[in-house]
């Protein structure tokens, strides 16, 4: 191996030395960083700038040069509401329905998912029968494509689906689960929890296993009750991991689109339309394509995500610093 690498390094060495002479050792770092910076600029930074440019222009034209400058009109249109709690009082009511749905979705999905993930992690951390099997079972849905997850549950829950067939078999009345706004929303939350729970369970399980055993042994010697052990030892020591899980789940919750879109299409009505779906519909699936409005909405979502990411970074750094 070394025989192969040495001549290669000798070939690279010549231009590197020349470059170092030309730029000096301090500036040489930029030469190494340049390819990555150029790619990052092209595919991450430039799209952000283009998105801002679209948000400040109107019409359904796709080329920026054909789009008239409208200032912050798209932002004012989106935020024009008599009451932010009543979507019907807003100029763009569907956007605010999507915002309300997303807020409820995050509260319920993150709450239930983190709660169940913790419960599952606690159980899987104990010496139970077939522990490896159950760990795999809980993680399996994470490996599935969101569209597959959505279709599986759609087939189960549709009017003539598996669940209604079971209810009918046992003589219970069937329910059109996806036609009732509350049921559809509830199932969307459930589906999302089911699909992602395994990932957070895994993180929490790692957090549980990092808690030193001697703390538990000391508690056992003091005859502490299981609840007291959980409340006074497990939970406080798991809290740094919990917070990371919580923030990650929040960010993921705001970004939810594919599985719910494939599951309900945002319906019935707009009962399960989330904010990312609103952006997609407004910019790409509607007629005319309101790129400006969609871009403005995406900037508003991005700001929320920036705040959440900043919180996550702050917590991670605080944990790292002890």
């Amino acid at each position: 191996m070394l025989k192969l690498i040495t001549p290669l390094m000798q070939i690279v060495d010549v231009p590197m030395r020349a470059l170092q002479r030309l730029l000096g050792p301090r500036r040489l770092a930029w030469a190494f960083l340049a390819p990555n910076l150029i790619l990052f600029g092209l595919f991450a930074f430039l799209p952000v700038l283009v998105n801002i440019a679209y948000a400040l222009t109107g019409s359904d034209q796709i080329l920026l040069r054909d789009r008239p400058f409208v200032g912050v009109r798209n932002f004012t249109d989106l935020s024009q509401c008599a009451s932010y709690l009543d979507a019907n009082s807003c100029k763009i009511d569907v956007f605010w329905r999507a915002v309300h749905n997303t807020a409820w979705f995050i509260v319920l999905q993150v709450g239930f998912m983190v709660g169940f993930s913790l419960l599952t992690a606690l159980i899987l951390n104990r010496k139970i029968v077939a522990r490896g099997f159950f760990r795999a079972v809980f993680f399996f849905p994470v490996l599935l494509s969101p569209v597959v997850v959505a279709l599986i549950w759609k087939w189960i829950l549709q009017d003539q689906g598996a669940l209604n067939a079971v209810l009918e078999h046992f003589g219970y009345p069937t329910v059109n689960w996806l036609l009732n706004p509350s049921w559809a929303f509830g199932w969307a939350v459930f589906l999302s929890c089911w699909a992602h729970m395994g990932f957070y369970t895994l993180i929490l399980l790692a957090g549980l296993q990092a808690i030193p055993r001697d703390v538990y042994e000391a508690a056992q010697m003091d005859a502490a009750s299981p609840w007291r052990v959980f409340h006074r030892i497990t939970l406080p020591l798991l809290m740094p991991t919990m917070v990371v899980v919580l923030v990650l789940a929040l960010i993921k919750g705001v970004q939810t689109f594919d599985e719910v879109y494939a599951f309900t299409g945002g319906g019935p009505g707009s009962a399960t339309t989330l904010v990312i779906q609103y952006i997609y519909q407004t910019g790409f699936a509607g007629a005319p394509r309101l790129f400006g409005l969609a871009s403005a909405a995406s900037i508003m979502v991005a700001l929320v995500l920036v705040v959440l990411t900043a919180v996550q970074l702050w917590i991670t750094r605080r944990n790292a610093n002890g």
């Binding site: 945002g266 319906g267 009505g269 509607g286």
Partner: peptide
């Protein structure tokens, strides 16, 4: 009609 959202 009611089973979908948007204009799907």
């Amino acid at each position: 009609w009611a089973g979908s959202g948007g204009a799907t």
